[in-house]
Design a protein around this nucleic acid. Structure first.
Length: 277
DNA sequence: GACCAGGTATTGC
DNA sequence: GCAATACATGGT
């Protein structure tokens, strides 16, 4: 992997088995949008335009320094997913199919607060609408950092709101949950810095003390926001997959990269299902 | 119009 | 404890 400055921004060359489409469209994040084969998004208060061709990632509107300090980690580019997929593929035949179907997925290192808040919004909701709510949340309460580009609002900012203030983002019954989370984070009752260092079970328990955060949302936060790769979000899709294809097995069957296995299984199954509609 | 969407809190047994 | 139900909103 070589990072070099080019006219448009930065080029990272020699990146094998990588797909922005699979990474951004597999349900782990909600702030990236495709326009003419390039993805535009915001993370960690920076906006980015990114695309991938012939084993090169091109990042526009950034610098090599920022790439090294933020985006390499964000896209988890230092990890060898090829080896991990081989390892997972040996465990089970269907899992191997899933790994072969989307061999370019990466588990993003997203901001913990943004991830927590986003998955609170995700409950009993569909992905297009989740994206809409988050987009309106950022537009109304985030900082403007470009032409119609906004940061994700901080917990502190949202902690000062009343439920009615969230009326216009149309988050529905989740408004109270968002504010409860924001309050618990900003007052220090829950310290997100510490959660990363806790045991998985302690972290789960702590996150679930927030109203509107149950097993699924806490697990998503740990996998996508804290990069706990053994976390395994169990939504309706995964429950069905476990029931039908991994009967009698627990998630520990997938080992320390269970979260990566989960992401491939989830995406594969959903895509297959979509085609038959 | 009923039904569903990467669930969770609340209620009733 | 565990099964049912309500919860806002928008798409199909």
């Amino acid at each position: 992997m070589i990072i070099k400055s080019i006219d448009e921004g930065v080029e990272i060359s020699g990146v094998e088995k990588f797909s922005l489409e699979e990474t951004f469209e597999c349900g782990q994040c909600f702030r990236w949008n495709k326009v003419d084969d390039k993805y535009y998004g915001v993370a960690f208060n920076r906006s980015l335009c990114v695309y991938y061709m012939s084993e090169n990632i091109i990042m526009e509107g950034t610098t090599p320094e920022e790439v090294k300090s933020i985006w390499i980690k964000y896209f988890d580019l230092d990890r060898n997913y090829i080896i991990i997929r081989e390892e997972l593929s040996r465990k089970d035949d269907f899992l191997r199919q899933a790994c072969n179907f989307c061999p370019g997925i990466r588990i993003l290192n997203q901001d913990p607060w943004e991830t927590l808040c986003s998955f609170i919004i995700s409950q009993n909701n569909n992905i297009p609408r989740i994206k809409g709510i988050i987009s309106r949340l950022c537009k109304k309460f985030g900082d403007k950092i470009g032409n119609d580009i906004f940061t994700f609002p901080s917990a502190k900012t949202l902690s000062k709101l009343m439920e009615d203030d969230l009326k216009e983002i149309r988050s529905g019954f989740r408004a109270g949950y968002i504010i409860d989370a924001a309050k618990k984070i900003s007052c220090g009752e829950i310290d997100l810095e510490k959660i990363g260092g806790m045991s998985l079970n302690d972290a789960r328990e702590k996150l679930m003390s927030i109203k509107g955060v149950g097993p699924k949302v806490s697990e998503c936060t740990l996998l996508y926001g804290f990069h706990k790769l053994e976390a395994f979000p169990m939504d309706v899709w995964m429950k069905r997959i476990m029931q039908e294809l991994f009967k009698g097995k627990s998630t520990s069957f997938f080992g320390k990269y269970a979260g990566i296995a989960q992401q491939h299984l989830f995406h594969y199954t959903r895509m297959m299902n979509k085609q038959s509609n």
